[in-house]
Write a protein that binds this DNA or RNA. Structure first.
Lengths: 110, 110
DNA sequence: TTCTTTATATAGAATCTCTTAATATGGAAC
DNA sequence: GTTCCATATTAAGAGATTCTATATAAAGAA
């Protein structure tokens, strides 16, 4: 599923709240946590991780993965934690505003 | 407020469901219907209207507005109505998937 | 005649996501 | 040993949408 622009960063930060994880793991985590509804493309994810690190919201370190491969582990910084709160709150406001206009979702068609 | 990419078209279609309206009116309508939360920029709206018309989801005609000015009135086509259903349903699915991951919105800070 | 509101349009920048492809290694299967 | 699959990262380029800024124009009020 294509993501709406702007949600990826938030989803990544939220996923890292549970602890450090490498890129591949983040993507798998989001995918399974959403019941396969959200499929993160690596071509979107890695630029996003770079972005988030440049902004100081996550920090990275090379380590060995649980499958004995080298992998870059990312973890939330204190600033990232605050950013996550801001983004979550903003997202909730946005969804609420859009829902006010859209009304109840249409019936699922056979 | 910045819109998430992809929601503008849906909001426009939804607004036109109530009847034909010109661009300026659509923007004002969305703004007030969202309690001033969603502020549509004209630089986003007019390209969107062009896009929607090219796709056959809306049709336009020049008329005289309620303030006696020339204005281009847009109305939903049958295809636009179907498209609106699709987009609304997809939006609901997306919000549901993201919410599953994000959990409850954070408390509002003073 | 000046200001505010109504009304449309376009160019260009900024941003994000997606497609595609390249690279590399560990472990299992054969 | 070598082939295949899952794991893991990276980068280039395209595509799409939104935003900033600007130009134009006319009705009506002051």
């Amino acid at each position: 599923m294509e993501l709406l622009q702007g949600t990826l960063d938030m989803l990544v930060l939220r996923t890292l709240r549970a602890g450090p994880l490498h890129g591949y793991g983040i993507a798998k985590n989001i995918r399974s946590a959403s019941n396969e509804a959200l499929d993160i493309e690596f071509g979107s994810l890695y630029p996003a991780l770079k972005r988030l690190e440049m902004k100081g919201w996550i920090a990275s370190a090379w380590e060995t993965s649980e499958h004995n491969r080298r992998a870059k582990y990312y973890k939330l910084t204190a600033a990232g934690r605050k950013q996550l709160l801001r983004e979550h709150s903003k997202w909730a406001d946005f969804v609420s505003a859009v829902s006010r206009i859209m009304g109840p979702a249409p019936e699922v068609k056979g």
